[in-house]
Design a protein around this nucleic acid. Structure first.
Lengths: 325, 325
DNA sequence: TTGTATGCGTTATCAT
DNA sequence: ATGATAACGCATACAA
């Protein structure tokens, strides 16, 4: 235990250091018997890098985000980065959450948040902290984004509906602040227009990305006296709510009376009671792109990185659009 | 900017420090214009406390864990603690994950993992790091647990089945390594026995806590020629799979032909297609108990804390056991 | 290869 | 109320 310098200990735990095998053995043995574990905190001060990444997320009750977080956390760990998690539901806590992250000197931020006050974005930019956004339209010198091809998926959904001769299409949209949802809606309208469907035929229902809001939206539609025959929902949770409401409130069944598409391809979309056609966002690819962006941003620490990746969403056809199971 | 000492800056950002309002203003103004943010990293070295808590979790695709994580993360943040997230699926990565956490000098670990190699637990104990487990039977000097009343819920489930005159009960169990699942099964058997049901009448199906495993288990049951009339599933995901398989494979409907109970009360249990009676674990209470344990463990840093809280699970009756919606 | 010395950005102690 | 100084545990530049 005695007889080794402090630097010898440091070197023993550094794979690249020049140290004799004998000394390393001695140190490692002593460490094991004393229960000594190297402390990474001082290295943060010396190097200016913490190898911690702030992950700012909300809406974990949506299985899509839960799955995405799972994959992101795994990828970050495999790249030697720690996850400092911030669950945030409103702009106020977002502000303080980012304060926390900054004070811990995180190397970067990854977020899937639709919200994000501009002051916050500006603050991060000023500090030169790289930010990677999922499905956000935010732009700025230190901000990169990884988006799924929302607009293209909207086009595809419209084409599928047109191909099935839909006359009373419905767009079940998410919150207006959700840029991804807006893009899906724009693609959908565009696609309907391209297919010659009159804009007046489209019913637009406002939801908030929850099951209940999908259910309620269809209930409202019934009161309006509209009998839909094709629905595109901005996410799967709302689509599941819509399917249940169609059956319970209107006596309509999928795909016999109405076909329906969702987005995200959450596990529940494959559950037999829903059998929901959906767009898979390929979170593995999106996470891989995120890691690329992080690697690059952290390698070139001083130069702001601002790149956008668009990952194609893949249509997963199931029974809700008439596909055999 | 100039004209203030290092300590003045420190005091300006410390609410309890004795400093004149004038000096504080000056420092804060300079900090704002220079973009200076206090760094919490050195304080970790000085105080020996990082205010970071390792959260080790797996199976995030189960909405129960996603919701629990959401609530835990919120509670920790409100108590001034940071979440260092570790997503872990197997014992190997668990080992290295804990190494990481220890090297960052986390103050404590919270985990909902069923796995947990004993070497790991021993390592944490040796280091004197408090651990709080969710629904785990692990014990040790630094380990506390917050459990839902799994055994009691099993009893309740059996009583409900007996009350409905069930003759062919089924226990759809989770993985054997899952202590919570085992306790639920033991309570269930006990309850059936108390109600005078012959043990031979009970069919036991092995699942792995996923929807598919619940579905497949019922499909196997059909091959065995068993026609169940009452099912208790160790979690809601398996229960949902079972409901779908009962209908698709056996033509049985809930609650007309068979009644079914799950566990966790995930959001999907309330979805109209399942309308599943379930046990709510009251994660808010469990999280609150967890925070109490953490507060106490962190206050008395040197004395090992080892306490167990049991939080009653609440039966949420829905249509799958014949309750009107 | 090994040991010594310096510094990272704070907080706490002490003196003023 | 304020400033100077030591200390936290490590990595690195330098000397040996």
């Amino acid at each position: 235990m005695a007889g080794v310098s402090q630097s010898a200990v440091s070197r023993a735990f550094s794979p690249t250091a020049s140290i004799s095998a004998r000394t390393r053995q001695k140190v490692l043995a002593a460490a094991a018997s004393l229960g000594y574990r190297p402390n990474r905190i001082p290295a943060i001060m010396l190097s200016g890098r913490s190898y911690m990444v702030g992950v700012v997320i909300g809406g974990l009750q949506n299985p899509f985000y839960a799955t995405a977080l799972e994959q992101l956390a795994t990828a970050l760990r495999e790249n030697g980065l720690q996850v400092m998690l911030m669950h945030v539901e409103d702009a106020v806590t977002l502000d303080s959450a980012l304060d926390q992250l900054v004070s811990y000197r995180i190397d970067a931020v990854v977020t899937s948040l639709a919200i994000g006050s501009d002051t916050v974005v500006r603050a991060l930019s000023q500090l030169g902290i790289p930010v990677v956004c999922f499905n956000s339209s935010r732009v700025g010198p230190w901000i990169s984004t990884v988006n799924s091809n929302n607009h293209g998926a909207g086009l595809t959904a419209a084409r599928l509906l047109a191909h099935n001769g839909i006359r009373y299409p419905v767009w079940l949209t998410g919150p207006v602040r959700n840029a991804a949802s807006r893009a899906r809606g724009e693609g959908f309208r565009q696609g309907l227009h391209d297919a010659g469907s009159p804009p007046a035929a489209l019913s637009v229902l406002q939801g908030d990305d929850t099951y209940d809001s999908g259910y309620d939206a269809i209930a409202r539609l019934k009161k309006r006296g509209v009998r839909p025959d094709g629905i595109f929902a901005s996410n799967d949770m709302m689509a599941c709510g819509a399917i249940d409401a169609l059956r319970e409130c209107m006596g309509l069944h999928c795909p016999r009376d109405v076909i329906i598409l969702g987005y995200d391809n959450i596990p529940q979309a494959a559950w037999r009671s829903y059998d929901l056609t959906s767009f898979s966002q390929h979170t593995e690819h999106m996470v891989a792109r995120t890691m690329e962006l992080l690697d690059e941003a952290l390698a070139t620490q001083d130069t702001p990185l601002s790149r956008t990746y668009v990952v194609d969403a893949q249509l997963i056809e199931r029974g809700s659009t008439g596909c055999a199971p």
